[in-house]
Design a protein around this nucleic acid. Structure first.
Lengths: 116, 116
DNA sequence: GTCGCCCTTAGAGTGCGCTCGAAGTCAAAC
DNA sequence: GTTTGACTTCGAGCGCACTCTAAGGGCGAC
């Protein structure tokens, strides 16, 4: 599929897809006869995973590291798993923090309602 | 209290405190005889509130807008309340998104565990 | 065949939120 | 009295994650 189609389906811009490939986040997307990128379903799945990592706040640098480990082969599975586990804890902590801040916000809003 | 003490208690750097004041996020912090900033408990409370807004992802621009409304007086209370309510919804949505992504992450980690 | 459009690469530019540096002031320590 | 060190202002610089531009290539529609 074309870069536009991949952009539409992944929710990333074509610019961002090229950028991700340039920095090594996406490896060896196929090219068609004209040298244009030709994404397949596996690429889409990987993009989807990357998007989840991004949206949970993983840095581009860490995502690159994960991608590199993946390319290095099965013997890095343990390290990849540990990366995800560490990241998981960060996300859980972030949810806890946001949940607390949400209560504080609710409290503040209540005071506005009572004052009004 | 000195800027260092305010930095320590607020968790922001002295640089950031000056920056916040410059852009209008913090209004008229008192000065002592030497022209040095002299923070009081009310300033600390405001910083604490700002920090909550920041950590929940409100942009500096929106925080400035809130600060401006606050300075404008009591007749802006409704608009301030609406700002907070809109922000509250964003935070709640973010928590929901993170919670979903956390499950996806957990699933992925489980597949690593089973493969290992 | 040429117009229009989308593609390619490599590098420059942008926006956000700080973060730092330079130049100067002031007060306490020695 | 001079050194030390924290403070002041204000503008420049930085890191991140894109986002865009320039210059050129390829292909289908007319």
């Amino acid at each position: 599929m074309t870069i536009q189609e991949a952009a539409r389906r992944s929710g990333l811009s074509a610019h961002t897809l090229r950028y991700y490939e340039r920095i090594g986040l996406i490896h060896s997307v196929g090219r068609n006869g004209s040298g244009h990128r030709d994404y397949d379903e596996q690429d889409l799945g990987w993009l989807d995973f990357l998007t989840k990592l991004r949206s949970t706040g993983m840095s581009i640098a860490d995502m690159c590291r994960y991608a590199q480990l993946l390319r290095a082969g099965a013997h890095t599975a343990g390290e990849r798993r540990r990366m995800l586990e560490r990241h998981r804890e960060k996300v859980a902590a972030r949810i806890a923090e946001l949940t607390q801040d949400l209560s504080a916000l609710d409290y503040k809003i209540r005071t506005y309602r009572e004052t009004a």
